[in-house]
Design a binder for these strands. Structure first.
Length: 433
DNA sequence: CGGGTTTGACCGGCGC
DNA sequence: GCGCCGGTCAAACCCG
């Protein structure tokens, strides 16, 4: 667990470093607040002599302070120069003090902003947890009531599915959707068994364009089967996670029948072991999607048009995808469609890859647009173009907070990361470029 | 030789 | 009951 936590920190830290290289605006420095970069230099030492106050007031790391090199340089010169008179030293000290004071005020302001941001993040996090908790509670009490609720859910999800086409072009023809099977499958949802094992059946689908036969998602997979699916000339491959013995996570990989450049990868289940950062982030995202799906399934309050917003609030790069809910399949499924981000690119100047996909996923770099020349530029573009950057930060923090709180069993939002069996098992479909 | 892939067989759910 | 279909198993095969 500790090791896992360390990995999460490293993941975020690296992101912070990328951000730090962008000298556009203060939020970049705010990300450095979470950086554990051991950046020690003389300037920091110099500041330490005067800066006990600074350290008490603000926990901001040295990276933030080192932005103001002239101040430190002046200190060094002042202390080392024997030719400077006492008066000049005094004057310089006063000047320096005023500079430090203004610096202190600025840091305090940034600290205040950080606090506000953190509060918002915590609030959103709590809301999501509460929503998930309510969902869990609703499913336990009496099945009779749930039957009625699910009855409503069925009709609603049928409604949602009927609107899928308008959200995701070409998706109808994909075997995952089977629009023609709506009636038969929707009737299944009325069965009590759906109430008994709803989590086990939850699925999330993500579609994207990819020439690669498989995407690298940070996990290790072993192929255990391949089948020809009805209505699709492309075979469906079955994989299971081999990162730990007995890990229940499985995934299916299949190309869309209509557009074979679209790769559909499906994840199912919760990992029972620590995950590498990339896989963790994906697991968070997919689990959030699954949680959202399950929440909507039971509460009947979440509608399709809010699905993307729901996801983008907790995992902002879901805004790159079109979210759709469907009850047309044997398992309730949510689809994150990344095949349409050429539209998004009109709104996001250069939409970088989801941070959590990381550089380990080169295929995803081909999402319909030229890849950024560097992660620095990617993140810079994200900052400058993505108004939801603060929620991106929230996602990153969630990936840290989640594992830390796993002990209490209630605080894991997306809980997929190591062992949170009480949380919904997700099945996510990735389509990559 | 060990680990991963391939592929036909098998199983269970579902509709007719 | 039968057939279809999705999902899984496991022996054979491949590869480094």
């Amino acid at each position: 667990m500790e090791n896992h936590h360390h990995r999460e920190l490293s993941f975020l830290s690296s992101s912070g470093d990328f951000l730090h290289n962008n000298s556009i605006d203060p939020p970049i420095k705010e990300m450095d607040f979470f950086s554990s970069s051991p950046n020690k230099n003389n300037k920091e030492d110099d500041l330490d002599q005067h800066g006990s106050i600074i350290k008490e007031v603000s926990p901001l790391p040295t990276l933030l302070l080192t932005h103001h090199d002239p101040v430190n340089t002046g200190l060094n010169l002042m202390c080392s120069s024997a030719a400077v008179s006492k008066e000049e030293n005094l004057e310089n000290s006063e000047t320096e003090m005023s500079i430090l004071e203004s610096e202190l005020r600025r840091v305090q302001e940034e600290n205040h902003k950080l606090r506000i941001m953190l509060e918002q993040i915590t609030k959103s996090y709590s809301q999501l947890q509460a929503q998930l908790f309510i969902t869990l509670q609703k499913q336990k009490p009496n099945h009779g009531q749930n039957m009625e609720e699910n009855h409503g859910m069925v009709s609603e999800q049928i409604f949602l599915n009927n609107n899928n086409a308008s959200v995701s072009d070409g998706k109808q023809a994909c075997p995952h959707d089977h629009p023609a099977e709506d009636s038969s499958h929707s009737s299944k949802l009325e069965e009590p068994t759906q109430d008994l094992i709803p989590f086990k059946k939850a699925r999330v689908s993500i579609r994207a364009r990819s020439e690669a036969p498989l995407i690298s998602d940070g996990c290790q997979w072993r192929k255990y089967g391949q089948k020809m699916a009805k209505g699709n000339p492309c075979p469906r491959a079955y994989y299971r996670c081999t990162m730990a013995v007995g890990c229940p996570v499985r995934k299916q990989v299949q190309r869309c029948a209509e557009d074979k450049t679209i790769l559909i990868t499906t994840y199912e289940g919760n990992h029972n072991h620590p995950l590498p950062p990339a896989a963790t982030a994906i697991a968070h995202t997919t689990s959030a999607a699954a949680a959202m799906l399950l929440s909507s399934s039971t509460s009947s309050t979440l509608r399709k048009e809010s699905a993307t917003g729901y996801l983008s609030n907790s995992f902002p790069y879901a805004t790159m995808a079109t979210s759709t809910l469907s009850a047309s399949q044997p398992f309730p499924t949510i689809t994150l469609d990344f095949t349409q981000n050429h539209n998004l690119s009109m709104h996001h100047n250069r939409v970088p890859l989801p941070l959590f996909f990381s550089h380990k996923l080169p295929p995803l770099l081909q999402l319909g647009q030229p890849p950024p020349s560097s992660m620095v530029e990617s993140v810079s573009a994200a900052i400058s173009s993505d108004p939801n950057f603060t929620t991106a930060l929230a996602a990153a923090i969630s990936s840290i907070i989640g594992p830390q709180r796993s002990g209490d069993g209630n605080n894991n939002l997306a809980g997929v990361v190591p062992g949170s069996p009480q949380l919904p098992q997700s099945c996510t479909t990735f389509s990559t470029n």
